[in-house]
Design a protein around this nucleic acid. Structure first.
Lengths: 124, 124
DNA sequence: TTATCATATGAGTGGCTGTTCATATGTCGG
DNA sequence: CCGACATATGAACAGCCACTCATATGATAA
């Protein structure tokens, strides 16, 4: 309660709180939980990679095996597998075995919506 | 055209293309341009950070100055400024001066939609 | 079984990125 | 002018991450 502990931090509060201290308090209370925000950030982080976006764009059209993706992306099979693991861990794609191959597809339709919205935004 | 240049790469094409070589070709042609995909990945990458998500959640409720954000997030003013720069460069937030302060707000309503969709997805 | 193809994975590495620290710029009040 | 406050920015550093290489697992065919 004493003002001393406030002074430890350099300047966490601006003096006049921009003339609206109540708004700041409102915003603070309305903030989503930390875990939830962390999860959302994690989701966007997984989507925020060139290779993974290309993989998702390919899978958006058709279920594909790893070597198909390797061919379409023109990159290392190992690199593709590593990124597929990231996408699988994030529950963005799912896989099923078919003989020697493993077929990948989008796990959730919500993800397509997210990506589509992302493209719309970038294209103005 | 000669097959020699294909052989340089170890195994870019699986032998049977998973029994659907035509589909692979279709997908390849339907892929969005590289630059576009890079831009989308960049957009998601900017959204894919805990601190930046928290900033956007705060700005979603109200226009705020840097010290307000510093207070709400409970972190270094410098760190907040650095992240605001990232968001500004990505045209996700915009700023305007008011006296000594700089007020930040969301630049585009599409961004709110994207974030909302992200939260919906995470919350099942 | 052995050989080959398809995929997964661990280790190592270079590059990127978020934070801190120090400092610079800019604005207002006195 | 000066001091105090608000914000921006550059440098340095630590942690993370995507790729490569080598190798392991698994499945099919002969």
């Amino acid at each position: 309660m004493s003002g001393s502990e406030m002074k430890k931090k350099e300047a966490e509060l601006c003096q006049h709180t921009c003339d609206h201290p109540d708004v700041v308090e409102e915003v603070r209370k309305a903030m989503p939980g930390e875990q939830l925000q962390q999860d959302v950030a994690q989701l966007f982080k997984v989507l925020g990679d060139h290779t993974r976006i290309r993989i998702l764009n390919a899978l958006y059209r058709s279920e594909l095996c790893v070597c198909d993706l390797t061919s379409i992306l023109g990159m290392n099979q190992s690199a593709v597998s590593h990124q597929l693991r990231v996408l699988r861990d994030a529950r963005i794609v799912r896989s099923r075995k078919k003989g020697k191959n493993v077929l990948y597809s989008l796990d959730d339709s919500h993800i397509s919506d997210l990506i589509r919205l992302g493209f719309e935004h970038v294209q103005h």
